[in-house]
């Protein structure tokens, strides 16, 4: 927060309250208080209280457990499945996030250029947003199944490469989603990317449109090539938008659930599916589910704080 903002927010309470007392202050600001109450109530009831309650549950246990106890945490960290889930979540999140950013930038730059029927193409590019997550998972199954497009593509590629004398590649058709390991995680990341690419693209497109054309013109008169204009003008000016995309998307990516459930099932757990598995029948254990949720919450917070501190903060002061 800038100093002027702090001052603007801080002044009415700092100065007015001590001198006139709460009653007078309240009477003076009746309308403001009335207007703020619904928002405060909303945030309390739907965000803060559930989080605190989850935290409470994570420290409780079935009858006999003394409160507070860290037993739920020790038990999940002892579980190999949980540790795999953390590792997988981080891999899938970083993979999909980086693919989204790179592809989103490329698509945004393309859509930003002037071309025939640009408006139409921009609309078409939004289609994945309207597809329910479960359905997009199903679409990805088509892509990655044993008889799916990816395998066909791989065959074409291998045939092509094998035309080169001395090269003799073998490719076995496989079902990517059930192959396990990086292949399965990759399909989850691609599915996630496909679904949210339009959002990332839209954020970048808004950013590109916020840069005035004459700044580019000034740069080209100053001697910048296209590439230099992108690296030294576009990219630095897009930092706030990239930050926004990363934060929005990182939160979503870490709590990925439906796609992982449809594509990876129990083969490769992520935190979302792990928590679901603990909570739902047959396990029916809200306590370890709660502690895993708190761990997920912690990971997201650490990521955001670290990003703001090291990446966004540095580029702003540079």
């Amino acid at each position: 927060m800038s100093r002027s903002q702090e001052a603007a927010i801080g002044r009415p309470t700092d100065v007015a309250v001590p001198r006139v007392g709460f009653g007078r202050w309240f009477r003076k600001h009746k309308l403001e208080v009335a207007l703020v109450i619904p928002l405060v109530a909303y945030v309390m009831v739907l965000t803060v209280v559930p989080i605190l309650d989850t935290f409470r549950i994570s420290l409780s246990g079935r009858a006999g457990n003394s409160f507070p106890s860290a037993q739920n945490y020790t038990s999940i960290f002892a579980s190999r499945v949980f540790r795999t889930a953390i590792k997988n979540t981080i891999i899938v999140s970083l993979l999909s996030l980086s693919m989204e950013l790179v592809l989103g930038m490329i698509v945004a730059l393309t859509l930003h250029a002037k071309f025939f029927a640009r408006g139409f193409v921009r609309t078409v590019a939004l289609i994945p947003l309207g597809v329910p997550t479960i359905v997009s998972g199903a679409i990805m199954l088509l892509l990655f199944s044993r008889s799916g497009y990816l395998n066909s593509l791989m065959f074409v590629f291998v045939d092509l490469v094998n035309n080169i004398p001395g090269v003799n590649l073998e490719f076995q058709a496989l079902s990517w989603t059930v192959a396990g390991g990086w292949r399965t995680l990759f399909t989850v990341a691609v599915a996630d990317m496909w679904k949210v690419l339009p959002i990332v693209t839209l954020i970048f497109l808004a950013g590109l449109q916020s840069i005035s054309e004459d700044v580019y013109e000034a740069a080209s008169v100053d001697g910048a090539t296209k590439w230099q204009r992108f690296m030294r003008i576009t990219l630095p000016l897009l930092v706030p938008f990239i930050t926004m995309a990363i934060i929005l998307r990182a939160i979503d990516a870490f709590r990925i659930y439906e796609l992982a459930l449809v594509l990876a099932g129990r083969i490769e757990p992520v935190l979302g599916t792990y928590i679901g598995g603990r909570y739902l029948p047959p396990t029916n254990d809200p306590f370890t589910a709660a502690s895993a949720s708190i761990v997920l919450f912690g990971i997201i917070m650490i990521f955001i704080v670290a990003y703001l501190k090291f990446v966004a903060g540095r580029s702003r002061s540079a």
Binding site: S212, V215, E217, A218, V221, D222, I233, L237
Partner: peptide, 18 residues
């Protein structure tokens, strides 16, 4: 433009904001 060795001053200045 970059090979013409000219400098330009724009109406809205077009300074690099960052």
């Amino acid at each position: 433009p970059r090979d013409r060795d000219i400098a330009m001053v724009f109406q809205n200045y077009a300074l690099y904001p960052h």
